[in-house]
Amino acid sequence: MTSVHGYFPPKTATGASALIPSPPWHYSGDLLTIEYRTDPARVRELLPEPLEPAAEDPGAVALIWADWQSCATGGRELLDPVLSQYKETFAVVRCAYRGRTYSRCVYIWVDKDFAIARGLHQGYPKKLGSIHQTRPHPYGPAPRIEAGARFGATLAAADRRLAQAVVTLREPSETGGFVNGHPMAHHRWLPSIENGKG
């Protein structure tokens, strides 16, 4: 009997067809983060037990656009960019578990199949979407990372515009993100294939 290999399906004799390679995975990219406040009760609706709303500022939300380049150890994918580049937009809230504050991704859209598979494996609720954002560049008409620079971003899924943003930079931030700056609290759910088994 032939044995099959690969970190993630489809598994084959060589393992070369696997949708995602073995971790660890490494990322670099450009992120546009917009933090805002909403009704804390709406955030609470998105937190499964045993998670609770964060004690401090429970209505804080971050909507983040990211233009990623990623690879496994060794960086093989970097020389075949279709296997390493993808974009995503995700909504993050703050929550608490056993008295500690965590970040939790409650919605996320990506534009590549390998990013969906990797995310579901990690506990991110990834779906397919169309994501675009202005890229900074040191030459030409593209904006630089400097005061006055303007950046736009859009998200669509199932042929519907879900979010858009325009940001004008004012000054460097002295801190990282308030919402997405904590360890992530995720669940990995996989319903039973048998009827009635949950």
Results as ranks from 00 to 15, higher is better:
Met1Arg: 08
Thr2Tyr: 10
Thr2Leu: 13
Ser3Thr: 11
Ser3Asp: 13
Ser3Cys: 07
Val4Ala: 08
Thr12Val: 02
Thr12Glu: 10
Thr14Tyr: 04
Ala16Tyr: 08
Ser17Gln: 14
Ser17Cys: 07
Ala18Asn: 03
Ile20Arg: 02
Ile20Leu: 08
Ser22Glu: 15
Pro23Ala: 02
Trp25Gln: 11
Trp25Asp: 08
Trp25His: 12
His26Asp: 11
His26Val: 09
Tyr27Cys: 09
Leu31Asp: 14
Leu31Gly: 15
Leu32Ser: 02
Ile34Ala: 13
Tyr36Glu: 12
Tyr36Arg: 10
Arg37Met: 10
Thr38Phe: 11
Thr38Pro: 05
Thr38Trp: 04
Arg42Pro: 03
Arg44Gln: 13
Glu45Tyr: 05
Leu46Arg: 14
Leu46Trp: 05
Leu47Gly: 11
Pro48Phe: 10
Pro50Trp: 06
Pro53Met: 04
Ala54Ser: 15
Ala55Phe: 07
Glu56Ile: 06
Glu56Tyr: 10
Gly59His: 01
Ala60Asn: 07
Ala60Tyr: 03
Ala60Val: 01
Ala60Pro: 05
Val61Asn: 00
Val61Phe: 00
Val61Tyr: 00
Ala62Met: 01
Ile64Cys: 04
Ala66Glu: 09
Ser70Cys: 09
Ser70Glu: 08
Ala72Val: 02
Ala72Ile: 02
Gly75Lys: 02
Gly75His: 05
Gly75Asp: 03
Arg76Met: 12
Glu77Thr: 00
Leu78Ile: 05
Leu79Gly: 11
Asp80Thr: 13
Asp80Lys: 13
Leu83Trp: 10
Ser84Gly: 14
Tyr86Asn: 00
Tyr86Val: 00
Tyr86Arg: 00
Lys87Leu: 12
Thr89Val: 15
Ala91Thr: 11
Ala91Val: 15
Val92Trp: 04
Val92His: 03
Val93Ile: 03
Arg94Pro: 07
Arg100Gly: 05
Thr101Val: 03
Thr101Ser: 03
Cys105Gly: 07
Val106Asn: 01
Ile108Gly: 10
Trp109Gly: 05
Asp111Thr: 01
Asp111Leu: 01
Asp113Gly: 14
Phe114Arg: 02
Ala117His: 07
Leu120Phe: 09
Tyr124Trp: 10
Lys127Asp: 10
Gly129Phe: 00
Ser130Lys: 12
Ser130Glu: 14
Ser130Pro: 09
Ile131Arg: 01
Ile131Trp: 00
Gln133His: 11
Pro136Lys: 02
Pro138Ser: 04
Gly140Val: 01
Gly140Ile: 01
Pro141Glu: 09
Pro141Lys: 08
Glu146Arg: 12
Glu146Trp: 03
Glu146Pro: 05
Glu146Gly: 12
Ala147Lys: 07
Ala147Asn: 10
Ala149Met: 07
Arg150Val: 15
Arg150Gly: 04
Arg150Gln: 15
Phe151His: 06
Phe151Ala: 08
Gly152Lys: 07
Ala153Val: 02
Leu155Met: 03
Arg160Lys: 13
Arg161Met: 09
Arg161His: 13
Arg161Pro: 08
Leu162Asn: 06
Gln164Glu: 15
Val167Gly: 11
Thr168Ile: 04
Leu169Gln: 01
Arg170Gly: 08
Glu171Ile: 06
Thr175Arg: 13
Thr175His: 13
Thr175Val: 06
Phe178Arg: 14
His182Leu: 08
His182Ser: 07
His182Cys: 05
Pro183Asn: 05
Pro183Phe: 03
Pro183Cys: 02
Ala185Asn: 06
Ala185Tyr: 06
His187Arg: 12
His187Ile: 06
Ser192Val: 01
Gly196Arg: 02
Gly198Lys: 09
